[in-house]
C-alpha cells in the first residue's frame, strides 16, 4: 500500500470525486473538509482515503434511509407519485405495485397522467402484467376528478393501497403545479388524511436542478419521501447528499432498471461507496 500525506492537494482531489458524482460544489467542499478534519498533514493509505470519504457520505445519508411504511390500519393507504417529465414515475408505480402485490396487499392504480400520449395505456399494461386493477379517465380529462373517483373506487373495492400516477411537470411551470395542488386538495375532500404518502421521483442523471425540484414539489404537493431512479447507469445521483440535509426527507427506494424487480430499498452504505468510487464489493478500484 502506498501512503500519501493528506494535504490540500488530496482534499482537492476528494472534492473533485464528489463534484463528479453531482454533489454540487458546496456539499463536496463540506464533505471533503470533514475527511480532512483531524487527519490533516497525516500520512494515510490512498485506499483508506476513499473508504473514509464513503463513511462521511454515509453518515450524512444514513438517517434518511427509511423504508416507505404502509400503515395497515389505514385503508386505502393513498400514495401520490409526482415529479418532472420522464423521471420514472409510471415505471416506479409498476415496481411498487409488484412489490405490494407480492406482499399480499390489494392494490389499485389510478392513471392520473391524463396529458401524455399513451400514458394511460402504459399504466394499464403494468396493471395487466401484475394483475392489478387500474382506474382511468379519458385522455385530456381532469386528473383531480379522477383522484376523487379513485379514492371512492378504492374504498368500494376494498383495496389496501391506492397509487396514483400524475403527469410529469417541470416545477417552474406554475399552471401545471397548480393542477397538482388541486389533485391534493380534491383528495383531501374525499379523505382528509389523504394522500398518506407523496413520493417525488428523481432521475439520477439530473444534476443541481434536483434541489429546485425537491423544494417546489414539496411546497406544492407536500412530498413525504424520495425515490431515485436510473442508478443502473453511470450517474451517481450524489445530489441526494445535498437534498438529505436540506430537506430532511426520507429516501425510500432506488430504481436500477426497467423491470418490475428493479426497485431496491435505499442503502446509504452502498450508495456512499459508489459515490466515493468504491465497488459494492470491498475490492478497491485501480
Amino acid at each position: 500500500f502506498t501512503k500519501r500525506k493528506l494535504d490540500a492537494a488530496m482534499l482537492d482531489e476528494l472534492e473533485e470525486v464528489l463534484i463528479r458524482a453531482d454533489l454540487g460544489v458546496a456539499t463536496a467542499t463540506h464533505i471533503a473538509g470533514l475527511v480532512g478534519k483531524g487527519r490533516y498533514d497525516k500520512s494515510i493509505e490512498v485506499d483508506e482515503v476513499k473508504t473514509i470519504l464513503a463513511e462521511e457520505v454515509e453518515r450524512v445519508l444514513a438517517p434518511y434511509a427509511r423504508p416507505l411504511e404502509i400503515d395497515p390500519a389505514i385503508k386505502p393507504f393513498v400514495i401520490l407519485v409526482v415529479g418532472v417529465n420522464g423521471s420514472g414515475k409510471t415505471t416506479t408505480i409498476g415496481k411498487l405495485a409488484a412489490q405490494f402485490s407480492q406482499e399480499g396487499r390489494k392494490v389499485l392504480l389510478a392513471a392520473g397522467d391524463t396529458f401524455r400520449a399513451a400514458a394511460i395505456e402504459q399504466l394499464r399494461l403494468w396493471g395487466d402484467r401484475l394483475n392489478c386493477a387500474v382506474i382511468a379517465g379519458n385522455q385530456g380529462s381532469d386528473a383531480s376528478a379522477l383522484a376523487f373517483d379513485a379514492i371512492r373506487a378504492a374504498r368500494e373495492s376494498g383495496a389496501d393501497i391506492l397509487i396514483m400516477d400524475t403527469a410529469g411537470r417541470l416545477q417552474n411551470r406554475a399552471e401545471l403545479m397548480a393542477e397538482l395542488e388541486k389533485i391534493v386538495r380534491v383528495m383531501k375532500k374525499v379523505e382528509p388524511a389523504a394522500p398518506h404518502a407523496v413520493l417525488l421521483v428523481l432521475d439520477a442523471t439530473v444534476g443541481q436542478n434536483a434541489v429546485s425540484q425537491t423544494e417546489i414539489f414539496s411546497k406544492v404537493a407536500g412530498v413525504t419521501g424520495l425515490v431515485m431512479t436510473k442508478l443502473d447507469g453511470t450517474a451517481r445521483g450524489g445530489i441526494l447528499v445535498a437534498l438529505a440535509e436540506k430537506f430532511q426527507l426520507p429516501i425510500h427506494y432506488v430504481g436500477v432498471g426497467e423491470t418490475a424487480a428493479d426497485l431496491a430499498p435505499f442503502a446509504a452504505r452502498d450508495f456512499a461507496r459508489a459515490i466515493a468510487g468504491l465497488d459494492e464489493t470491498d475490492a478497491p478500484r485501480h
Partner: peptide, 15 residues
C-alpha cells in the same frame, strides 16, 4: 420494450 411506447408514437402521429 417500454410499455405502450409504440402506441405513444402512434397517438402523437395522429395529433
Amino acid at each position: 420494450k417500454r410499455p405502450a411506447a409504440q402506441e405513444q408514437l402512434a397517438v402523437l402521429g395522429r395529433q
